[in-house]
Simulated scan of single mutants.
Amino acid sequence: MFMNAGFWIRLGAILLDGLIIGLPVALILMLITGNGFGEERISNFLSMLYSILVPVIWGGYTVGKKICGIRIVKLDGEPPGIGTMLMRHFVGGLVYGITCGIAVIVSAFMVGLREDKRSIHDLIAGTEVVHD
């Protein structure tokens, strides 16, 4: 049985992903596109692809999660598939968008306070983030 990952380790993994993957991608795009047009959209699209595809390809890990020793798994302990990650990202994102971000705050409290440490997008997709 895995031990669920709490708020701070998950936040650390997100920040590491942003620094290690997001920042270099943004800088490269800025150099390629010059200062501007479409840069933010391309960066957002690449970030979305990263957050959906890398966990599918890499058994539930992103670079930040691997460094922190945590990963996304389905409730049966299996790595997430593309359908699971699409549910987690898009349906969860829809909930967060419809609530104008209030659900993001609720999710942070859920991860910090719930015994199973699952957020709204985890509940939607049937996933959890666990320590290795």
Rank of each mutant, 00 (worst) to 15 (best):
M1H: 05
F2N: 04
F2V: 11
F7R: 05
W8V: 15
I9E: 06
R10K: 08
R10C: 13
L11N: 12
G12Q: 05
I14Y: 13
I14N: 06
L15W: 12
D17F: 10
D17K: 04
G18I: 12
L19I: 15
L19D: 12
L19G: 15
I20F: 14
I21A: 08
I21G: 07
L23F: 14
P24I: 06
V25C: 13
V25I: 15
A26R: 03
A26E: 10
A26L: 12
L27M: 12
L27W: 09
I28V: 15
M30W: 11
L31W: 12
I32M: 14
I32L: 14
T33R: 05
N35C: 09
N35W: 13
G36L: 10
G36P: 06
F37C: 13
G38I: 08
E39F: 08
E39W: 03
E40L: 14
I42F: 10
F45H: 07
L49W: 11
L49A: 13
Y50F: 15
Y50D: 07
S51F: 12
L53G: 08
V54L: 15
V54W: 02
P55K: 05
P55I: 05
V56N: 02
I57V: 15
I57L: 13
G59F: 04
G60M: 07
Y61I: 07
Y61Q: 09
Y61S: 05
T62H: 03
K65Y: 11
K65W: 11
K66C: 12
I67G: 08
I67R: 03
C68W: 03
C68V: 15
I70N: 02
R71F: 07
I72F: 03
V73N: 02
V73G: 03
K74F: 10
L75M: 14
L75I: 15
L75Q: 11
D76H: 08
G77A: 09
G77I: 04
P79F: 01
P80C: 07
T84D: 01
T84I: 04
M85Y: 00
M87Y: 03
F90D: 01
V91E: 00
G92K: 00
L94R: 00
L94V: 10
L94I: 10
L94D: 01
V95H: 00
T99S: 06
C100M: 10
G101R: 00
G101T: 06
V104D: 01
V104I: 15
V104R: 00
V104Q: 00
I105Y: 02
V106L: 10
A108C: 11
L113C: 14
L113A: 15
L113H: 09
R114W: 02
R114M: 11
R114D: 09
E115T: 12
D116T: 08
D116S: 09
K117Y: 06
K117W: 04
S119I: 08
S119A: 14
I120H: 01
I120G: 01
H121Q: 09
A125V: 08
T127Q: 04
E128R: 05
E128M: 13
V130R: 00
V130Y: 04
V130T: 04
V130H: 04
D132T: 10
D132Y: 10
